[in-house]
């Protein structure tokens, strides 16, 4: 029972940590640390969600969950009904395994469809995108709308639309390119993948949605930081503003798109220079590492 309690407490602690992380603003000043924290919370929550029903089902063994699971598997393989385990308890163990399988396959399916979409996108780019001397290393799409994005992969592509070329000056373009290259280098697509997958699996769970939105924003901020290192704040903030303004000019008042609030946050963050909160960051990392260590140690012992 103690083990089930441990898992239960981990789930609760994950939920609380996620609430705190979602509300904190120090995360904006060290996005990389915050992303690590979110990843740890996600991993810990997933493991604990698997472990909780398992530990309840294995309560009869009086062993840590990992060892108890092995004992149960051993007995089942010998063809004997495990002594002291009711059908309900066996069902709970099955539920725990089921949660694990669902989490794993959803992530895998998400990866598969992302790779497929990227492949299709890459094929089309090969046929219709062009190179342009003003943006070396990037591909240009001849379309008047403003877009700048990274097609991730082993050979990533940075793509800019003709609308963006018109919208931004040379310094701003350079900053945007560095921003996109940071996405590609740090494989932010893979960082986002489990969160996207989880959101798809559990669309009604608010804190999953929150986590996904937070991590999406943090990934952008991290890439902003990389661009800021190379090109200073002004061109990047300028580019963001122009993107926001391109929106305002065309949208009727009050009908702004989803990204607008995030865009404002990012501009604001670039203009006020704060030192990364080392102490808070270290503390958050320590807490979230402990969160992961708890279920892992229970499964391994």
């Amino acid at each position: 029972m103690t083990y089930a309690l441990h898992f239960g407490l981990t789930v609760l602690a994950c939920w609380l940590t996620a609430q705190v992380l979602a509300r904190s603003t120090w995360t904006w000043r060290s996005p990389r640390v915050a992303i690590l924290c979110w990843q740890a919370v996600g991993l810990a929550a997933g493991l604990a969600a698997m472990g909780l029903p398992m530990a309840l089902g294995l309560a009869g063994y009086d062993l840590p969950t990992g060892s108890a699971l092995w004992a149960l598997v051993g007995e089942l393989r010998r063809g004997a009904w495990p002594a002291g385990v009711t059908a309900l308890q066996l069902g709970l163990v099955g539920l725990g395994c089921g949660i694990g399988v669902v989490l794993f396959t959803t992530t895998l399916r998400s990866l598969h469809s992302a790779v497929r979409a990227q492949r299709r996108h890459r094929d089309l780019l090969t046929l219709v995108a062009r190179q342009d001397p003003t943006v070396p290393g990037a591909l240009v799409l001849d379309h008047p709308s403003a877009a700048a994005y990274c097609l991730p992969g082993v050979r990533p592509r940075v793509v800019i639309s003709a609308g963006t070329l018109d919208l931004l000056d040379q310094a701003e373009l350079a900053a945007v390119l560095t921003h996109e290259q940071a996405h590609a280098q740090e494989r932010h697509d893979l960082v986002l993948l489990p969160f996207t997958a989880l959101r798809r699996a559990l669309p009604w769970l608010r804190w999953v949605r929150d986590a996904h939105e937070r991590v999406t924003l943090l990934v952008e901020m991290r890439a902003d930081d990389k661009a800021r290192e190379r090109h200073a704040e002004a061109p990047l903030a300028g580019a963001l503003r122009r993107f926001a303004a391109a929106d305002n000019r065309l949208t009727p008042a009050g009908a702004l798109g989803l990204g607008d609030h995030d865009l404002e946050l990012r501009v604001h963050r670039l203009l006020e220079t704060g030192r990364p909160p080392r102490l808070l960051g270290t503390a958050a990392l320590a807490v979230t590492t402990t969160l992961v260590a708890l279920p892992v140690s229970l499964f391994l012992s």
Binding site: Q118, H121, S145, A147, A148, L240, F243, A255
Partner: peptide, 26 residues
């Protein structure tokens, strides 16, 4: 089609692309 993907209007919910900013209107 590429622009719809790029502006996240393609209906895909996969993390297939990472965008700088979305600037698109209805």
């Amino acid at each position: 089609q590429l622009m719809l993907d790029a502006l996240d209007l393609g209906g895909s919910r996969d993390a297939a692309l990472v965008r700088f900013a979305r600037s698109v209107t209805g």
